[in-house]
């Protein structure tokens, strides 16, 4: 078996160079200044951006909750449909993801603008126009739109494993539908819920495209802040690295908290 173990060597070297060392570099930049001397200044400067950080977490949280509310009933309906219908539904859910997400978000700009399609329809029937673009609501909408499939798919793949006979047994034993849901369906679907939450929350909290395109300049998020430090006018990779490090640690903490509820094998996480 010696030979087979060594086949992992190219990957291990690759992983060290392109995953481990870059993360060490992020940490190194976060704790040094432009000349490479140790400093805590970057870390303490992160405090100045508390408002941005809380806004990101709040908006991502709201988007995650809305995704769950929309996706849960849908995933349940799909998982109870006939096999042929399930395939069609799944195809319909995945298809939009094949269109570039920048373009889909751009299309939302067209829809939401002050002279956009929705406002024109509203004016035609005598209400509006409303200011929809460049608001926090638009940012949340963009997140829900882009990440909804990431909530639907893990929920669906989890719910197909819930057998109909369990639900029928609960019904036969006299449980009202509310009880069937709270005692059988919901507990069994929890692993899917947890996976869905992380798959929506992580990209939502760190986005910088959606907030920039739909939120205008005034709804900056953590992602925008990081991007500005590396490629924007505020060029300061040390501060950018400090914020990235904070974001990474925050995400890892959230994940390990969620994993407490989720005892399933890690391999199922992605699929």
């Amino acid at each position: 078996m010696k030979i087979s173990r060594s086949t992992a060597m190219p990957y291990i070297i690759w992983m060290i160079i392109f995953t481990v060392i870059p993360l060490i570099l992020v940490t190194y930049f976060a704790f040094t200044d432009g000349n490479g001397t140790f400093t805590m200044a970057n870390i303490s400067e992160v405090k100045d951006y508390v408002a941005v950080i809380f806004r990101s977490i709040w908006l991502a949280f709201v988007a995650t909750v809305i995704c769950l509310i929309i996706a849960y009933p849908l995933a349940y309906v799909v998982s109870r449909a006939s096999e042929k219908k399930q395939k069609t539904y799944l195809l319909l859910v995945m298809l939009p993801m094949w269109m570039n997400f920048l373009l889909r978000t751009y299309a939302w700009m067209t829809l939401l603008e002050n002279t956009g399609i929705i406002n024109r329809l509203l004016v035609m029937i005598g209400i509006g126009p409303f200011a929809m673009i460049n608001t926090q609501g638009a940012v949340v909408l963009g997140m829900v739109y882009n990440y909804l499939p990431f909530m639907i798919l893990p929920l669906y793949s989890n719910m197909t494993k819930i057998e109909n006979r369990l639900i029928e047994a609960a019904q036969d034993l006299g449980a009202p539908s509310r009880k069937v849901f709270s005692e059988v369906v919901w507990p069994l679907s929890l692993p899917g819920v947890m996976t869905g939450i992380t798959m929506v929350f992580v990209p939502a909290v760190s986005t910088f495209i959606i907030s920039r395109m739909l939120g205008g300049g005034s709804n900056m998020m953590i992602g925008d802040l990081i991007e500005l430090q590396f490629l924007g006018n505020a060029y300061n990779p040390n501060l950018g690295a400090a914020i990235s490090l904070g974001l990474m640690i925050f995400i890892l903490l959230c994940m390990s908290m969620l994993n407490q509820f989720n005892e399933e094998d890690k391999e199922g996480m992605i699929i």
Partner: peptide, 20 residues
């Protein structure tokens, strides 16, 4: 370690590779 690029926000992976 393999999970890191999947769990990590993409922006962190992007930034770390850029720094490298």
């Amino acid at each position: 370690i393999t999970y890191m690029p999947i769990i990590n926000p993409e922006i962190v992976t992007g930034v770390s590779l850029m720094l490298l």
